[in-house]
Design a protein around this nucleic acid. Sequence first.
DNA 1: AAATGTAGTCAAGATTTGTGACTATCACAA
DNA 2: TTGTGATAGTCACAAATCTTGACTACATTT
Lengths: 160, 160
Amino acid sequence: MKRSVRKRQDPDLGVLAARLFFGLQEELFRRSAEEGFDDITPRHGAVLAYLDEDGIRPSELAHLSGRHKQTIGTIVDELEKLGYLRREADPADRRAKLIMPTERGRRLMRYSDLVVAEIEARHAALLGTERYGQFKSTLRVIATAPPAPPAPPSTTSSVR
Amino acid sequence: MKRSVRKRQDPDLGVLAARLFFGLQEELFRRSAEEGFDDITPRHGAVLAYLDEDGIRPSELAHLSGRHKQTIGTIVDELEKLGYLRREADPADRRAKLIMPTERGRRLMRYSDLVVAEIEARHAALLGTERYGQFKSTLRVIATAPPAPPAPPSTTSSVR
DNA sequence: AAATGTAGTCAAGATTTGTGACTATCACAA
DNA sequence: TTGTGATAGTCACAAATCTTGACTACATTT
């Protein structure tokens, strides 16, 4: 059996994770564009996904999204120009800025949260609420699991 | 409750999918690098993930990975230079090429399949084989589900 | 054999990411 | 209070990556 065929018939966790992620991303940005938010790209998702009505710092966005703070900086520049957010001074720390969504940004936040909720509802309708609920809670555990278990102590370890 | 905090405490499917995918990718490439495959990047994954001992065509790689054929072309160039694969003529179609892994490519295929299998085994050990099996089969259904259901017929549809 | 479609490549421009350095501010300790 | 080291954010430039359009060779259809 060809590996490429096997990967299609019995895809491993990596292939499934990629499909889930990119499929969801595709629908989210396609529908957002249809709704009038047609000037953003998946690249902006790193910031948009974590926008907060109460403001959030660029460095926290960098941490949450796993990107460099320079990248976040240019994405924030773009989204500011597009009218989705503003930079404000953070009263708690004069070095820091707070990224505050504009009205348009808030509308996008609501809409994208809605689309994701709809996608989840679709799965729940297809699978049953209980099975989907179990799936999601298992996914939460797995997605939170540490990357690799601590290296098992070995009698041949170089430490001894 | 801040949206950003909510997204951390009760992450939606989008956030979970991103974590699952990027977490797995991180471990896979980190461990591959430790194993000596330290000249490849996640970008090469589009090709590496679907390499096949029996050969596979660039256009099929483009389709499977969702990237442009030009992108696949340059990735294949790089992997060829790095010694992971060769381009061979496809006997069945003289326009086409077959991407054949070299011995090094086959070793990487085996190792990365092993790492993913190990990650899955880790989850299965943590959750129990049955619960993990249910999770994975549900994930397969969800990841295969069509992006959006056909627009529901509506009495106010512009078609009528 | 003509027309149309497909496989792969080339080349150039635009976009995006990564690196290093820099200022301002904060936190902490001497 | 002053000094030291860390942190938040930005600038500027180099490197990597993606996108677009055009092109050749071959296959398929009519």
